[in-house]
């Protein structure tokens, strides 16, 4: 099954809706045709599809509430998707239960945003790093090799064996993130889902962690799903970038294509809003008004139309689908069909 053209990860039409029911009386609504029991759902992810090849780094960017972290957590099966497929090396894991997930976890691991909350404060570093490995190794012989492997892993992420006996609170944020990376690497996965792995770190430490993640990719041929809100970080690390807005993918392209000629108005606004230490030149400036609408009550048609400077009546009627515009770039926007409306 490990044929080289099966993507490491393939996501098809993934949906994740969270019911926010509350109690019976909260949901009870009067009026219209008598008494109704409402079932409000947050449509966090609304039909997202993409692929990640072996050794590829795919980044998902977007603002808070766009569903990028939910996509990551659904792929890592922290959430069970409402519908859609999540294929790891061709195997659909969307409906798997806890026991069925165990062998999958040897192929896919996760790195979390907050290095202060993602390590058990009462475990020593050695036990933290060993835990996924022990979960996967049931033979006595295999378990004998674990300590040596832990030491090698810690060295790989720039910690030494002296650190193995310490507790998480004895480390700085950057070092804790290294421990998190060592833990993810312990089972030699092919895919690492990294949810904002450097957002909580200072810029000089952030550079260390990004360099480390890149080195590890080159050494082990890892694929990353890299979630970030920071465009400059994404530009540095990613091979491919998907831009999300309100639960939908609005644009997906190779990094250089996306940064050189973004097509979706939201991507363009995002790129022009990012502050830069370089002096401003003739930067295209699309300033968005307003804020992201609630995922409880999505706008009709295109989810971005309430903030889009180009929106017209078609955008309210029809939800644009991702379409290929060449250069391996796909965009979900009606402007592609009617470019004369693009007046920027």
């Amino acid at each position: 099954m490990n044929t080289s053209n099966t993507p490491m990860l393939e996501v098809r039409d993934l949906k994740m809706h969270f019911p926010i029911g509350g109690g019976f009386f909260n949901r009870l609504k009067l009026g219209g045709k008598g008494v109704r029991l409402e079932n409000p759902v947050v449509q966090a992810v609304n039909g997202v599809s993409f692929k990640i090849g072996r050794g590829e780094i795919m980044a998902l960017v977007g603002e808070s509430g766009c569903g990028k972290s939910t996509v990551a957590k659904t792929i890592a099966r922290i959430h069970k998707p409402t519908s859609g497929e999540v294929r790891i090396e061709g195997e659909d894991i969307a409906g798997y239960g806890f026991a069925e997930m165990l062998p999958v976890r040897a192929k896919m691991q996760m790195i979390f945003q907050d290095p202060y909350a993602s390590l058990n404060p009462r475990q020593r570093v050695r036990d933290i790093v060993a835990e996924p490995l022990l979960e996967q190794t049931k033979t006595a012989q295999g378990r004998k090799d674990v300590p040596a492997r832990i030491e090698a892993l810690l060295a790989k992420v720039g910690l030494n064996s002296e650190h193995a006996g310490r507790y998480p609170h004895q480390f700085s944020g950057g070092q804790r993130q290294r421990i998190g990376i060592a833990r993810a690497l312990s089972v030699t996965p092919g895919l690492i889902v990294a949810d904002e792995p450097v957002s909580a770190l200072d810029v000089s430490i952030q550079a260390q962690i990004l360099n480390l993640m890149k080195d590890l990719r080159d050494e082990f041929g890892l694929a990353y799903l890299f979630i970030s809100h920071d465009l400059s970080v994404v530009h540095h690390i990613a091979d491919r970038v998907g831009v999300m807005y309100l639960g939908s993918m609005v644009e997906n392209a190779p990094r250089d294509v996306l940064f050189a000629k973004p097509r979706h108005p939201y991507t363009r606004a995002l790129l022009s809003a990012a502050p830069s230490i370089k002096e401003k030149r003739d930067k295209e400036e699309i300033v968005l008004s307003g804020e992201v609408p609630s995922a409880l009550n999505l706008p009709s048609g295109c989810c971005f139309r309430t903030r889009c400077p180009f929106a017209w009546d078609r955008c309210a009627r029809e939800r644009p689908a991702l379409q290929d515009v060449g250069d391996d770039q796909t965009v979900a926007c009606h402007l592609i069909d009617e470019p004369e409306r693009d007046t920027a």
Partner: peptide, 16 residues
Amino acid sequence: DSIPDTAHRHDRLMQI
């Protein structure tokens, strides 16, 4: 130098 620069991409970031 540790800020990733979108104009010039280097393979590695300078790190402190």
